[in-house]
Amino acid sequence: MSDQEAKPSTEDLGDKKEGEYIKLKVIGQDSSEIHFKVKMTTHLKKLKESYCQRQGVPMNSLRFLFEGQRIADNHTPKELGMEEEDVIEVYQEQTGGHSTV
């Protein structure tokens, strides 16, 4: 019986991991920090939209990076291997420009 009891508790931990929340720091170019608590399985588009709304800027005017890689709207913290207190960097999107060649 103890084996049966242990097995469901392991499964519960697996389920808990799926719905687990982590805190992420979003740091802007001006070094301002906003902290977000997100589920591991939530699409990061929600975090990006919330950040842009707080900053009063359109979402397409900023780019969000985690460990140097651009974050897509459909990425989740779990897919990117994010952990508690990880940092997302935000930069002004640069458009235009010309070749110097």
Rank of each mutant, 00 (worst) to 15 (best):
S61P: 02
D86I: 02
E18L: 09
L47Q: 02
E5K: 15
H35E: 07
K23M: 09
E67Y: 06
R54T: 05
D15R: 12
E83D: 10
K25H: 15
L80V: 02
H35C: 14
Q29P: 12
V87P: 02
D86C: 12
K46P: 02
R63T: 06
K37S: 00
H43N: 09
K7E: 12
F66V: 02
D3Y: 08
E33F: 01
E18A: 11
C52N: 02
T10E: 06
G19V: 13
N74W: 07
S32T: 08
I88E: 04
Y91Q: 07
K37L: 07
M82I: 02
K39L: 07
T41F: 00
D12C: 11
E93H: 12
D73Y: 04
K7H: 13
I22G: 06
L24W: 01
V90R: 01
E79A: 07
L47M: 08
K16Q: 09
F36E: 00
Q29S: 05
L13F: 11
L65G: 01
E84R: 13
K39G: 15
F64T: 03
D12R: 13
V87F: 13
L13R: 13
V38H: 00
H75D: 11
I34M: 09
H43S: 08
H75N: 13
S32V: 15
E49A: 14
S32H: 05
V57M: 08
G96P: 09
T95H: 05
K17A: 09
K7M: 02
E49P: 00
K37D: 06
L47Y: 04
P58D: 02
G19C: 10
E84Q: 13
P58Y: 03
P58T: 04
K17H: 10
K48N: 03
Q55H: 09
H75L: 06
L80K: 05
I27P: 02
L47S: 03
F64N: 00
E85C: 14
I27H: 15
G81D: 06
G68M: 00
I27S: 04
N74R: 14
D3T: 15
S32D: 04
D86Y: 07
P8K: 05
Y91S: 04
E11H: 09
D86S: 14
G14T: 07
Y51D: 04
E5M: 14
H43I: 10
Y91P: 02
E33P: 05
T95M: 13
D73V: 02
H75I: 07
N60V: 06
H35S: 08
G68S: 06
V38R: 01
M40S: 11
I34L: 08
N74Y: 14
Q92W: 10
S31R: 14
E89K: 06
G28D: 06
V26A: 14
P77V: 02
I22K: 03
L80Q: 01
M59N: 11
K23F: 02
I22V: 08
Q4K: 09
Q94F: 09
E67P: 04
E93W: 14
T42M: 07
F64P: 03
D73C: 04
E5T: 13
G28T: 00
Q55L: 11
I71S: 03
L65P: 04
F64Q: 07
K37W: 08
Q94R: 08
K45V: 10
G28C: 01
L44G: 03
K37F: 03
Q53N: 07
H75S: 13
T76F: 00
N60W: 08
K7F: 08
P77H: 03
E93S: 10
K48V: 02
L62F: 10
T42Y: 00
V26S: 15
K39T: 07
G68Y: 01
G97C: 03
L13E: 08
I88C: 02
M82Q: 01
V87Q: 13
F64L: 05
F64M: 01
Y21K: 10
L44P: 03
G96Y: 00
T10Y: 14
K17N: 12
D15T: 05
E79Y: 15
K46I: 12
K37P: 03
H75C: 11
L13T: 11
G97S: 03
T42R: 05
